[in-house]
Design a protein around this nucleic acid. Structure first.
Lengths: 202, 202
DNA sequence: GTAGATTCGGAACCGGAGTTCCGGTTCATC
DNA sequence: GATGAACCGGAACTCCGGTTCCGAATCTAC
């Protein structure tokens, strides 16, 4: 794609970027549901141009989602760089969720009734998962996460939190509750700093 | 509505019931997304008939959701009847979720991007909430739920669990994790039977 | 500066799904 | 069992939003 990116005419490349930006904002704001005309208008282009760059709406959405996943991977990387295993885990968890909060499209992609054929995003997702895996393992090894905690559980928890982002639900409270159930220290081995890691803002 | 139900012609009342049944099944199966024609066919009726009984698709869906909410209220009532406060809470929680699991429409109604004007279901929802409130309070008073647990948290938890019902997510595991974070016994006061209240399968 | 290819614009097209309409049918009543 | 009202059926209509198409505009190369 870098090659083909070079071979694009100057204006074409510029426009492609405009489309991506416009779509990114609108999708983030209102998820699927925005219509192609809106995106075109916001980008200052005609619909025809959108279709020159993306086969159809799905493809455009997929491109956007892919972009976000890259960002997530970056975020995960820098979380992994933290010394403290628990700090790394928390940075990952909250970083992930705080990124997801203002991005309806991302949440839609993960919560909606889809699963099959979400484009070629699977690679990106795999890269992300690999890092999550490592961070989780490290936190478990350090005894900061319960011994039977698995990377899949990260998905359960984030899915749950994201479901409480729409509307009035208070997802931070939810995460705080969940952390209690996840903390390390097998029965009898008192957890380091049990309550109040973050303000629970009722 | 009981009055108008009486005044319905015999076949009309029968058909109305057929519509409700057909719609109930299909909506439960595939949530919104089923189309009016399908419902009509499944009910063995013409589309026109649907519209004789329900103003539009929303109204039909709302009727279905309302029905489920009544069932939920009944379920909550019988949970409340249990002696043990914790048993009551668990019965409520698992009963609720097990009812929601096979009902895509219900989940859709609670998780989807809606909120405003979900028909006149609010009354039903209020009745349900009142019972939840009591059950939660009782469990808190008995020390089986953490002292700061509120009825709203029930919503957080169920929302989270339902988000893990679609696809491969294992919602029982998720609930089990969440219960750990919710259990009663303030710090220093060991929880009664900490782990493994239910088989955590996986 | 011009040729030729690439890209753009946006009106027109198209299919899908909710909704309407009215002639035909069924039910309740006398 | 006849009459009128209530109800049913489903083809046709409408609206909406994604997609196509092609003449016009723009860019790059010579």
């Amino acid at each position: 794609m870098t090659a083909s990116e070079r071979s694009l005419r100057a204006d074409a490349r510029r426009n492609r970027e405009s489309v991506l930006d416009a779509a990114g904002e609108l999708f983030a704001q209102r998820g699927d549901g925005v219509q192609m005309d809106e995106i075109a208008e916001r980008a200052g282009l005609g619909v025809g141009t959108l279709y020159r760059h993306f086969a159809d709406k799905r493809a455009l959405l997929a491109a956007i989602i892919g972009r976000r996943f890259e960002a997530m991977t970056g975020l995960a990387s820098s979380a992994e760089a933290l010394e403290d295993p628990w700090a790394a885990f928390e940075a990952l968890l909250y970083g992930y969720l705080e990124s997801a909060e203002p991005d309806a499209a991302f949440r839609f992609a993960l919560l909606g009734p889809h699963e099959p054929t979400w484009g070629d995003i699977d690679e990106q997702k795999t890269a992300f998962s690999a890092i999550v895996e490592r961070i989780v393992r490290r936190a478990v090894a350090a005894g900061r996460l319960r011994a039977d905690f698995r990377a899949d559980d990260f998905v359960l928890i984030t899915r749950g939190a994201m479901a409480n982002m729409a509307g009035s639900g208070n997802w931070r409270r939810h995460v705080a509750l969940q952390l209690e159930g996840i903390r390390g220290g097998s029965p009898g081995d008192a957890p380091p700093d049990a309550r109040s890691e973050r303000p629970s803002e009722v």
